[in-house]
Design a protein around this nucleic acid. Structure first.
Lengths: 190, 190
DNA sequence: GAGTTTGTTCATTTTTTCTTGAACAAACTC
DNA sequence: GAGTTTGTTCAAGAAAAAATGAACAAACTC
């Protein structure tokens, strides 16, 4: 009894099909979402994709963002016309980065979700869970390269200079992350 | 007539099969590249992929980075065992973001390439060509959302607050870009 | 405990992205 | 101009990523 907004609910909504397409955007088809909501889902989804997350994940965050009340898995599934599997996995990813928080509604048995709205938290969660790890493994790999580079007999200076450049870049990367965090913390909008 | 192919001198290159695989890494097979070079190509390629560029593009930048001399399309093709098409397209992309510069070698007819080594230039080129455009189109889309949101009669305050949040985020995004640029400009390593 | 409701997992299918290679163009050579 | 050499384009194939859906588990209800 997905109250309210089921796709093909009682009305004659003909195949309410709203499918994710290449741009990660949603085809404009009859939707249980208000126009501004569809547009927002689409927009947010695009932004999220810029950060390398799949379209469905962006859409899930988007629909939570555009909903006045927390939503449960089933509602998300219906509103976006995505599979239960996608929704479940997408929510997991969003929880991991801290982009979405579970809400326990007193009477309800299901788990509801609301979006994290602090840009700082969103970004730093992403940096922490997605970028930092890469930077770390990058460390190990750099060490391998340094070791191999010592076996080089020819062009010694060139090799050293390049390896050094890599090292510098890597450091710079590690330096910049916390600064981004810092930049976003001031003037907490909204 | 590939001459003076870097590293492993002018020896006979035995079936250099080196294929791009899922992680964007290169299978370890007999390669015309020295070990540190292969490793570097692999490493750099990984980093480049973090920025959303395809593996082959990263590999191309990587091999240029690891080569003491500029390379031409044909040499790149051979060293990485990728197709001429890939190499050509990859080089175009790299030229667009300013990650690679053409070098005119006096006697030679072919076009040779060398890698841009300034981190600042690399990053700002990327921001300019890949991120800025998204931010701009984002502007237009935000306007659409604002317009649609005015048609909303219910939950007025909620809708306004969300739209406002989007606006703030977008501004923040535009503010941060130049700062990143700034951060990278000081102390020019290497 | 039998039957629900809710959610997760994962093999399969679908979609998207990347690479290839062959056809084409442009610029040079003789 | 005919033949090279060098490089680009783009349709088609290959590979990777994402979404689906059905089987399964866990927690609840009676």
């Amino acid at each position: 009894m997905p109250r309210a907004v089921t796709s093909t609910s009682s009305s004659s909504l003909p195949q309410v099909s709203q499918r994710l397409t290449k741009g990660g955007s949603l085809e404009k088809k009859p939707s249980p979402l208000a126009p501004w909501q569809s547009e927002t889902v689409d927009y947010v989804s695009g932004v999220v994709q810029l950060f390398g997350l799949p379209p469905s994940v962006g859409a899930i965050y988007g629909v939570l963002f555009a909903s006045p009340e927390p939503l449960c898995l089933d509602e998300i599934t219906t509103l976006l016309s995505i599979s239960k599997g996608s929704a479940s996995q997408g929510l997991r990813q969003l929880k991991e980065v801290g982009a979405v928080a579970p809400v326990r509604l007193q009477e309800a048995r299901r788990e509801y979700f609301k979006p994290e709205l602090s840009l700082k938290k969103l970004v730093s969660g992403f940096l922490r869970d997605r970028v930092r790890p890469s930077l770390d493994s990058s460390q190990t790999r750099l060490e391998v390269i340094e070791r191999l580079s010592r076996d080089e007999s020819a062009r010694k200076e060139f090799v050293l200079s390049r390896v050094n450049t890599l090292r510098v870049w890597s450091e710079r990367g590690r330096d910049v992350l916390p600064l981004i965090d810092l930049l976003l913390s001031e003037k907490t909008g909204s």
